[in-house]
Design a protein around this nucleic acid. Structure first.
Length: 269
DNA sequence: TTCGATGATTTACG
DNA sequence: CGTAAATCATCGAA
């Protein structure tokens, strides 16, 4: 069961359709402002995708997770698209209905005198009705945006697995310093920067990695050999480059010698 | 839905 | 403070 945010769009029209129309309507203004600020609505054309991106950037501000960003952006864009589609539909329907009514009135005018005033009144009523519908659409969209926003905000509290590349970098460091996998503060910062995660995340990762590696070395041997081989390649290349006179000495197999007997029992600061 | 992997948090130690 | 160890909470794949 995946619950997205499909509901609360084109839903019923029975939420109050009266009492709020002509006056400055602070409520409507608020909705409009929010939709505008969020990138939905706005200078129409193109669905305001750029505006969506800008709003997303404004929301995401301090975060460093680009995955959630794109997620949020995609959903917001979807909302925006639906909003514009519906809005256009309503407008079209309004026009069609208006012309239809006009035609009816015109036909009736042959058997009954109809004043321009009456026609105008009719059109006004129709427009009012549709504008009220549009406001409901705005409200629904606003609601959806708020739901999305709240979900985005508290989604940041939830755990996110690191990217494949990040774990790659971390593992590379870990296994190439297997004899003493305690990166210094600077090294941590470097890793954090490379992996696009925070310093404490790096510390957490190494803490978890150390304890879990030690707890079940067998489970990690494959991984260890993999990264050992990986670094061995670069190391071999470096050596080969330095020693431009290779030896006929066959280097003992990639040595599955992953036997660090004493597992960093003590550490120094 | 289950279950292992995994990031985060808590607790205890020096 | 940083860390070890246990534990929690979520993810992601079978």
């Amino acid at each position: 069961m995946k619950e997205s945010i499909p509901d609360s769009y084109h839903t019923g029209l029975s939420i109050r359709g009266s009492q709020d129309e002509d006056p400055p309507d602070p409520q409507l203004m608020r909705l409009d402002n929010m939709l505008l600020a969020e990138g939905v609505s706005g200078p129409e054309k193109g669905g305001g995708a750029a505006a969506v991106a800008a709003a997303t950037a404004a929301v995401g501000v301090g975060a460093d997770n680009s995955i959630e960003h794109s997620d949020y952006r995609a959903k917001l864009s979807q909302i925006s698209q639906i909003y514009h589609t519906e809005l256009e539909k309503y407008e079209q329907a309004c026009n069609e209905f208006t012309t239809h009514v006009m035609n009816l009135l015109r036909e009736q005018s042959r058997t009954r005198p109809i004043s321009p005033k009456e026609i105008e009144r009719m059109v006004n009523i129709i427009h009012r009705k549709f504008s009220s519908i549009q406001m409901q659409l705005k409200q629904s969209t606003c609601e959806a945006v708020m739901i999305l926003r709240s979900r985005f905000l508290d989604a940041r509290r939830k755990r996110r697995n690191f990217s494949k590349q990040a774990t790659e970098i971390l593992n590379e460091y870990f296994y190439s310093h297997l004899s003493n996998p305690y990166p210094s503060e600077e090294a941590k910062e470097e890793l954090a920067k490379k992996c696009a995660i925070t310093l404490s995340q790096v510390s957490n990762w190494f803490g978890n990695k150390r304890i879990r590696y030690k707890k079940n070395i067998g489970k990690f041997q494959e991984e260890a050999n993999l990264y050992a081989a990986k670094t061995a390649v670069t190391a071999t290349q470096a050596v080969a480059a330095a020693v431009h006179n290779s030896q006929t000495n066959s280097p003992a197999t990639p040595s599955s010698g992953t036997h660090e007997r004493d597992h960093w029992r003590d550490h120094r600061g």
